[in-house]
């Protein structure tokens, strides 16, 4: 992984503030390899980058604490996970603990161009591996 320094311009009314944010971004391809995951949707989108990880099985918490640009790790596999990702501007979902989403959920994600990964690893192990490889959590993000 390379270290990428992004310069973000936040425009507030007439004044614009440039802030330097040092953050490890990770491509979905890297995520797939680190977690030994299978791609269920969005195989053509693996070059997309996620800037942080968010692990939760309760979608309200994702809506409350998740940030745009996140990778969502969850053991929940119903359609509301895809909806939640859509609402919260989540980049991609990785289903953990080996539970597969049903066809409809996968189809919904495909329609929305939302990449879906799937790993047999438990939540803790998945979060741990990604964190060790440099992916930060939402509380560490300055976005």
């Amino acid at each position: 992984m390379e270290r990428i320094v992004t310069t973000e311009r936040v425009v507030t009314g007439e004044t614009s503030v440039g802030s330097e944010v040092g953050a490890e971004k990770m491509t979905l391809e890297e995520v797939r390899d680190i977690l030994g995951a299978e791609v269920l949707a969005g195989a053509h989108l693996l070059s997309l980058e996620v800037s942080m990880g968010c692990g939760a099985d309760l979608m309200s918490d994702v809506l409350a604490y998740g940030k745009p640009g996140s990778l969502l790790l969850t053991g929940l596999t119903n359609q509301q996970v895809v909806r939640t990702a859509e609402m919260a501007d989540i980049v991609a979902i990785c289903f953990v603990r080996g539970k597969r989403p049903d066809e409809e959920t996968v189809e919904m994600a495909k329609r929305q161009e939302l990449p879906l990964l799937w790993t047999r690893l438990p939540m803790f192990e998945s979060c741990g591996r990604l964190y060790r490889r440099g992916l930060i959590g939402v509380s560490e993000s300055t976005d």
Partner: peptide, 10 residues
């Protein structure tokens, strides 16, 4: 959050 707790413990 969960992700960071798991990460730090890991």
């Amino acid at each position: 959050p969960t992700f960071e707790v798991a990460g730090k413990l890991y």
